[in-house]
Design a binder for these strands. Structure first.
Lengths: 360, 360
DNA sequence: TGGGCGATTGACAGCGCTTTCATTTGCTCC
DNA sequence: GGAGCAAATGAAAGCGCTGTCAATCGCCCA
């Protein structure tokens, strides 16, 4: 008895149909088949039907590698993200695919897990596929990564952050300004002891932290003991742990700004565990506006960023360039800004009104 | 003034270096360069160094497409997932990449958003890249999808679910059994009015629902008014909405089993909003064991599945097959089972003890 | 000192497709 | 009725790389 084997790996079993197989079957030349598939309007109705029949009969699927090699159009766009676990990048990736897939482009995603080294390797690997463009999150690539990208000769879009010195195209927002704005918002609500919790100091989180610090300084507030930092990747639980640290040092902390929503939710849970009322005793504001922000109790205030727009613009701009045979677009940089969503976890008067209404 | 253009698209500017460029530069033949890169041990030390120097000088990056075409080894594995938003698939994908990337394989991910139609298209597209294997979540592909996969001649691993009629290899768990087990667990805790909330009726969620129903029937319990179903994709908020529905029909519902953790968390929040105590008034159990289950207040009981193991096994088995030149592995199907994690949201005695301790 | 062997290197063909240019066919028009 | 033209099809070349086999170069031993 022979062991079963896979034909894709075992060469002597029947191989997949090729263009020529289809051509032979339909009684035409290979070129005609190619045309019938790529530019059906250039082929007579009669042949087109015969060819379609042969394609179906043979289960023919064009070899994209061969096609890309011959045409020097790979129809591939490389996308580099630092994380998939993070809800932010799902939406962003989805937006990119929604634009690119219908246009016939395949997205090659590389998750580099916030590692510069993996990022360099990913860029190299990606370039091996000769993508027609690269979309990369962040503006803090290593010098080698920047070199690779610049030498690649393809459009590069840096997203999620903004810089004076983009590799090529750039859409993002100023995280320092966003961090500062969150602090100022809390200040206006009457808070003075404003804490900041931050985890996995990726460049954007670091900028938000810097923004926090700058605003505190400008407002003449001391941040002594109010900052808790954890180099490990953030998760919900960690929000509680970091808040506990601050609480131990500054028991009368009145507001918390976290570098992302996960930590903020963790703070919410920790408060619940300790019987600390939010927002009455402590106000909480997160960053990103993930789904759960509107579902939690209380709802979570947060800094909202235009992650869908960043993905969409990156993808659309690439299509424009590729279709316009390489012409650079009019706009090469966009600051999408941010906005502060004021919800239950930082409510001041509203909460009290709500309470009054309930007890009434 | 000339408009700036991208060289990758504009043909008359300098193109990327090829093998031959490197060969010319190093004064050797192209084959030798190829060997120096693929099988360095077959080339003399002297040449290897000259070639490496030329590679670096020219910023040479091998064209993976050409290499794959010539060698008929693409080093690509296609992975089809129904969602990325869902925390489950991040972990799973991560596990697959952790095995495959170090082995030199590139993972081509396709997110088909729970759509059969997109899945068919994705399979077709993927096959165009001649992957060496395909890993696909679920066992409920359309007949056409199954045909495509079978005819592809490459190993196919179906994951996340288990079936009597696998396309090829299969690792997963019995969702019907898992749903039933959750119900029985609640029953043993003394619950009788057990509700089930379910959203986006994907096949696995449907099986969990069937399991719920079967167990209820077997236990002689009525599920009248206790099931809330919503075809839209689930999110945390929806957990609250669905629970409210049930509550309106059956005010004395005593336990809730949800088709995933998101809904369960939503139920938790809804209870908090309404002043319903969990687990004292209502017990809650979710499905999947996502991160937040251990962070929430109370912690969330859930049915835990081995998503990492499923990804790892799928990837490792593929490597085994590809390296073993197509030999099928000894084991072609694995049931990884599931386990019920009993935590705060379903605690009985424990909660009371805890409370006593606190008030003491 | 010459045959033979292993270690290196190169020539050639071809992976499956597309691009370019040539050829064929069927008409129209004066 | 033949020049002229558009539409449809095909032939040849080549995208960048690798597999196969042939050629070359020492170097060892009889």
């Amino acid at each position: 008895m022979k062991e079963p084997r896979y034909s894709g790996v075992n060469l002597n079993s029947k191989r997949r149909a090729t263009l020529s197989d289809v051509a032979r079957r339909a009684g035409v030349s290979p070129v005609t088949v190619s045309r019938a598939l790529r530019h059906p309007e250039m082929v007579s109705e009669d042949l087109r039907q015969r060819i379609d029949a042969a394609v179906r009969l043979l289960n023919y699927i064009p070899n994209h590698l061969a096609s890309a090699l011959a045409s020097t159009r790979t129809q591939i766009v490389g996308v580099i993200v630092p994380s998939l676990t993070n809800g932010v990048f799902d939406d962003y990736l989805g937006a990119i695919q929604d634009v690119l897939n219908p246009a016939g482009f395949q997205v090659l995603v590389s998750n580099v897990r916030y590692s510069d080294q993996l990022e360099e390797k990913a860029i190299q690997t990606l370039l091996g596929y000769h993508p027609e463009a690269i979309i990369i999150a962040g503006v803090d690539q290593t010098e080698r990564s920047r070199d690779l990208l610049r030498h690649s000769g393809v459009p590069v879009v840096q997203t999620m952050d903004i810089t004076d010195d983009p590799i090529d195209l750039n859409i993002g927002l100023d995280h320092t300004a966003a961090g500062a704005a969150a602090v100022r918002y809390l200040y206006e609500q009457g808070h003075r002891k404003i804490a900041h919790l931050t985890a996995r100091a990726d460049p954007r989180a670091r900028r938000r932290h810097a923004g926090y610090q700058r605003a505190m300084d400008e407002l003449g507030l001391s941040s002594e003991g109010l900052v808790a930092l954890q180099p490990r990747p953030s998760d919900i639980e960690m929000g509680g742990t970091l808040f506990a640290e601050v609480l131990a040092r500054v028991p009368d902390v009145s507001a918390v700004f976290t570098c992302n929503d996960d930590l903020a939710l963790g703070v919410l849970f920790e408060c619940q565990r300790r019987g600390i009322r939010v927002p009455d005793d402590v106000a909480v504001i997160g960053f990103n506006d993930l789904d759960f922000c509107v579902a939690s109790v209380p709802t979570l205030s947060t800094v909202s960023t235009e992650r869908l727009k960043m993905g969409t613009w990156a993808a659309e701009t690439i299509l424009e360039i590729v279709r316009g045979s390489g012409k650079r677009p009019a706009k090469t940089q966009i600051d999408v800004g941010f906005s502060i969503l004021s919800r239950g976890s930082t409510a001041v008067a509203a909460t009290k009104a709500e309470k009054r209404a309930r007890t009434a």
